[in-house]
Design a protein around this nucleic acid. Sequence first.
DNA 1: CTGTTAGCGCGTTCAC
DNA 2: GTGAACGCGCTAACAG
Lengths: 342, 342
Amino acid sequence: MATIKDVAKLAGVSPSTVSRVIAGSNRISLETKNRVQRAMEQLNYVPNAIARSLARSHTHTIGFALSRRADQAFSNPFFSEVMRGMSTVAQARGYNILLSISLNPEDELSKCLQLVRERRVDGLILSTSRVKDPLIAALSEEEAPFVVIGRCMERPVLSVNNDNVKAGYNATVHLLEEGYREIAYLSGASDLVVTIDRMNGYKQALIERGLPLVEERIGVADFSEQDGYEALCQMKERGVSLDAVVASDDLLALGALQFAERYGLRVPEDLGVVGFNDTPLMVYTHPPLTSVRILSYELGVEAMDLLIDALENPDKKRLKKEIVLPSELIVRGSSRRRGKAE
Amino acid sequence: MATIKDVAKLAGVSPSTVSRVIAGSNRISLETKNRVQRAMEQLNYVPNAIARSLARSHTHTIGFALSRRADQAFSNPFFSEVMRGMSTVAQARGYNILLSISLNPEDELSKCLQLVRERRVDGLILSTSRVKDPLIAALSEEEAPFVVIGRCMERPVLSVNNDNVKAGYNATVHLLEEGYREIAYLSGASDLVVTIDRMNGYKQALIERGLPLVEERIGVADFSEQDGYEALCQMKERGVSLDAVVASDDLLALGALQFAERYGLRVPEDLGVVGFNDTPLMVYTHPPLTSVRILSYELGVEAMDLLIDALENPDKKRLKKEIVLPSELIVRGSSRRRGKAE
DNA sequence: CTGTTAGCGCGTTCAC
DNA sequence: GTGAACGCGCTAACAG
């Protein structure tokens, strides 16, 4: 494998000259430039990225942290889409993506710190955020550049989020307008900021319409259909009445559908259901699932752009920008009973 | 950020000594070893991975190539699972994963070559294989270490695959045993080795049972429900009769379900359907989808292990091992009509 | 415009 | 057992 020296030798110049034509320096004669380029082609020369990184002390690599719970949570294409978005930008701006999948938040923390301290990545993108997130705290202390997909409640950070409060609010209002009154909320892991925000939107809608906020109608479940199903069954068995469910994830909404089946409830007549993420396959549930569409691809795009901007403009680094992307409620059969025969 | 020199200075030794305790050299006195370790802790020292890579001329990083069509194809968790498997092994063996998502095979080729030539990765894992795959050819010529998830028809390569021919065969035999006789096959992109293998299994089953092999019953579609739907509609409109479908992907099977609805065919009575991948959400289709379960997580595990083994045992490098993992047909409502009232 | 000199941070002989 | 010296391949500051 040819090195910069080989090229220099062949072209009859010094390595630094070669380095200059690679960098596209303008103070270089057209003639030697051509000569060098010919030599590079002839030797099939490609600069060694590692050596470059060492010399310039940055890697042009971004780490993406995914903890397994998050991963399985969204066995829907949410993260695939985010990654596609990130990847598009990374590609365009000359960056690479290093993947870090962990089994739990503790591992995630140590692996991310490792990546940063080893200087393997220039910055990190975090896939979710929790209340008092230790990872965010550690990274902040380390002064490592990072952006979180989600929101940080404790301190200003670079972040890209969707309007979860509003989305939760809209979903709930929609159910109210369809005539549902006893609306339950299915939360994901209770320390995830997303699910808390969505819940707050839900609460806000109820309060605004003067409806009672029944704590027993709020169920906490891991992001899985099974858990969603069980949470609702427990509610029912405790004698809590409900005629609709706002589920903070489509998988949980699926659990709600199962729950309806178990108790012989008709959807949407007896139970209205709305989920989150608008997972493509949810079109095929019976009835098709109403869901909040999240701009996951765009989330990835914005996150990567934000991080690279911060990286490349050290002056702006201190400005902790927070981007919020809109969501859209996609109404389908699972929540539309207005005008239907009762 | 502390360097090896800082540690050396603090411990009152030379950098090479520090290097030795990092490497776990045994010819070092316990005393200085402890002294160095204390210094490392005190300075919160972590070796710079880039400098290491340069000195040792390998990165401990594996590239994973995904081309977008493959990605969207499997908006099911197939690749997530593969990645989880790869990640587990990578973690355990001290490797990192660099992600390379491309929009098309051409981009994929150039990006992968780039990664290898830049020496950014020690090796690559390819997510799919095509007939006369240019990427495989290029990588072979480059003598870059890589393993393909799938199979290479032209030359021996390191590969991890599932038993697609047998799986296609089993799926078809199952339909035959359920009494279906006019079985169609829905292929994915016609140059993907997976889909070809599955088709050959399908053909073999028909031939074995003495049934005619009707070329018109083989439809080619991209991996999407829409395409699957359209392929079958075209078949129908051309007057081709069919009473069952083997779809090389669950999404295509979904298209078959749509097709059935469109033409008022009852599933499984009038149309039997079996898909591939056993996507979790397919349990919720009506009726639940029969599908071939692929060991995607294990595929990732084996691929990563195979690659790292080859990397770390240069002597074995020449041995082009090909691993095949079993699959399992999960029978559900969409293909079970035996014993049912007709 | 171009070459020389010094690193970037670490691994690895080769001596002592 | 330990240190000095050199090299990995490239960039950057300084001359000229």
